[in-house]
Amino acid sequence: MRSFEHVNALNIQTTVALLSEPSTEAIAGGTDLLGELKARLRSPQRLVNLKTLSKLREIRYSPRVGLRLGALVTLAEIERHPVVQERFPILAQAASSAATPQLRHMGTIGGNLCQKPRCWYYRNKLFHCWLKGGDICFAEDGENKYHAILGADRCHAVHPSDLAPALIALDATVCVVGPEVEGEISLEELYTKPTERHRRMTILGPGELITEIRVPPPKKNARGVYLKAMERGSWSFALVSVAAQMSLEGERITDARIALGGVAAIPWRARESERLLVGQEFSEELAERAAEAAVAGAQPLRDNGYKVPLAKSLVKRALEISIRERSDM
């Protein structure tokens, strides 16, 4: 990688100001950024080290407001936290399925949610792809077994985060600060399909930072699961992942939130599946229909057609596991 200046963040305000300057980037765990710097995809002149913002390292929980995760909380801390394990198991499952123990000890939740796609054309300096400001998506007509089956337009990369689908299923929000903004948005709103003018996968602009992730208290009788299909047993991004969170009254589903990873440029909310489920009593046939609905409109490329049945199977399985676990109670 090229040389750069490394400065410690003093407080949020000055950090935002620093990050608004040209050729300046934030670094926390560095597990994503360092890969880009080593591949020379980007060569910022200055890195602002967020790890000195100790306030952003806290995990807080109260039954009334729910879970508050500072942006610098590591995946390892989330995975091991007793309250997360007990109250938000799908978050613990998602965190523990990500990467490797070494990477989870370095990687932060804020960085995980804002990470860049793993598309092998995007990550390779030899390809000036559309997402990097070029003219074409090399995956469209190239090697695309890892690429998107849903909602792709100019870019076929998928969002790689394991935590994002889990947090969306948990209805999480994020606190964002920037030179011109400060506020709380739903995590789902953070993500955006890259467009001609905004070739990024989040709405964050220069100098804008996530400071906290907020998860509301779990609903009554809430159950969920995070399932992830990988090419091998560990240390892999999801081919497809599913986060499902459901609430039940008796046999009737009162609430359902389902989000998929690995299928689209954004964590993919399966709203039609949710609509089919809510108000119904669970059955295998219903799970089948909900699974079908999750991939409705899929447009696979040459090599990624397998993701369609895989996503369906995982959605169905996630629903069945959620229900079964409830009946086990």
Binding site: R118, W120, Y121, N124, L126, F127, E143, K145, Y146, F237
Partner: peptide
Amino acid sequence: VVDRNTGVVVNDNLEN
């Protein structure tokens, strides 16, 4: 995995 259009090895790392 070699990109059929350019001959570039796209998984030249231990990630992919």
